[in-house]
């Protein structure tokens, strides 16, 4: 019979076994921390510049920490007052929300048909949609603008939103996901009396929740930062997005100082940062799932 109670010497040796990290682990941590610093420093610098006394950020010895919150809020107030930034926030948020809603609806409905049903020309159609993924934006920009212009949608919310609703990537992702829904589940639904739309609404859609969240996140990241299309289609202040407002600060003839420009950038960065903080888990899962950063 072995001794059930560990001897004092055994306990001591256990205590001594506190893991000494291997060199490899230390190197991995150093690399990870370096990457984190590289990623976070610009954000910190932005924050420090915004909340700094005038002139400090461009001084010979700039401070790496905020020096005046009062000055910072004054700058934020200035930007809000002089640039219509709140309006731009509203436009950007509506543009993003409507685009996400539309992309989710259209992609999931199309994917439902492509993934779970057969119809004539299905493969050819799917191939055409996938081919469109390979066409660069520069090629489609002008034809899309002409179409939108003919519809009289220039400088309107629908002009901003509608062309971005048919997402080939979204269709591809949702189709891949929905293909994993067993056919028997839908057949069971059919026998229970569900019509075609009810199969989509009550079965396929809830079962694709993870994919929908991922697509929503990827669409958010793409839409919030989108610059080119809003630049082309909205030319009046009423429909400027946040990125366009920032662009005004960057124009060569603007007389604003670096800290005011930084404030505008800072305000633009807040929504995605908050978004990331709240949806971290899903963003990481989503990127892993789609193998893409959007």
């Amino acid at each position: 019979m072995t001794d059930a109670i560990a001897s004092p010497s055994a306990l001591a040796s256990n205590r001594r076994k506190i893991k000494v990290p291997s060199l490899w682990t230390v190197l991995k941590w150093i690399a990870a921390i370096s990457v984190a610093v590289v990623a976070l420093f610009p954000l910190w610098w932005m924050f420090s510049v915004v909340f700094a006394e005038a002139g400090v950020p461009v001084a010979v010895n700039p401070r790496l920490y905020p020096t005046s919150f009062t000055d910072g809020f004054a700058k934020i107030w200035e930007v809000f007052e002089e640039t219509g930034y709140l309006r731009a926030y509203y436009v950007s948020i509506m543009y993003t929300i409507l685009t996400i809603a539309g992309v989710l609806l259209i992609s999931s409905m199309a994917a439902f048909e492509f993934a779970l049903f057969d119809f004539p020309g299905k493969n050819a159609l799917f191939a055409v949609v996938m081919l469109s993924l390979m066409v660069p934006l520069a090629v489609t920009l002008i034809p899309t603008y002409l179409l939108v212009a003919q519809l009289g949608w220039v400088n309107t919310m629908q002009g901003l939103v509608v062309p971005g609703l048919a997402s080939a990537f979204g269709l591809f992702m949702m189709t891949q996901f929905m293909q994993s829904i067993p056919k028997e589940t839908l057949e069971a639904g059919r026998l229970e009396g569900a019509n075609h739309f009810q199969l989509y609404w009550y079965i396929a859609l809830p079962l694709s929740k993870n994919a929908l969240i991922t697509l929503a996140i990827l669409t958010f990241m793409k839409t919030w930062g989108n610059f080119i299309w809003p630049l082309v289609v909205s030319n009046t202040r009423e429909v400027y997005t946040v990125s366009q407002v920032i662009n005004q600060f960057n124009s060569p003839f603007s007389h604003t100082t670096v800290d005011v420009v930084m404030t505008a950038n800072f305000l633009a960065a807040i929504p995605p940062i908050l978004f990331f903080v709240f949806f971290q888990r899903w963003i990481i899962e989503g990127v892993q799932m789609s193998g893409s950063k959007g």
């Binding site: 028997e184 069971a188 079965i203």
Partner: peptide, 16 residues
């Protein structure tokens, strides 16, 4: 299928 008054139990159960 839905109007035949038939219920089916699948091999994989096919629960939602």
């Amino acid at each position: 299928a839905a109007k035949r008054g038939i219920a089916m139990v699948f091999q994989s159960y096919a629960l939602f």
